[in-house]
Design a binder for these strands. Structure first.
Length: 103
DNA sequence: CCGTTGACCCTTC
DNA sequence: AGAAGGGCCAACG
């Protein structure tokens, strides 16, 4: 059987991000088998499955997503709904970053 | 098949 | 500390 497409892998990973935890685009890309394809993850975020918790995906700086529908406010609100605290459009990713292995 | 695109990342000024 | 540029690679038309 053929390996799942990159897009498929990314969506599968995002789906597993637990509430209150975060992952970076580059991190997801690497787990999906393509380190460096962080931009692709962003593209999937925009055109991929809207049901997935994309609000738990942030960039390496811990900053909110640029093209998030509704803007930073919407993204921030969704994160706070997960119990997180957003300060100045940024997050303490060092403490919130999550890896599937942490399960 | 080829060119363009992008919710990024890294190095450098 | 912030701004600018180049690189990266799959998806899409």
């Amino acid at each position: 059987m053929q390996p799942p497409s990159f897009k498929q892998s990314v969506e599968d990973i995002v789906r597993q991000i637990p509430r209150g935890r975060l992952m970076t685009y580059g991190q997801i890309a690497a787990l999906a088998g393509n380190p460096g394809a962080a931009r692709i993850v962003g593209g999937i975020a925009h055109f991929g499955d809207p049901q997935l918790p994309w609000h738990r995906v942030v960039n390496k700086k811990g900053g909110l997503a640029r093209g998030y529908p509704g803007g930073y406010s919407a993204h921030k609100r969704d994160l706070e709904y997960d119990g997180l605290t957003v300060t100045d459009l940024r997050l303490p990713i060092d403490d919130l970053i999550w890896w599937p292995e942490d399960v």
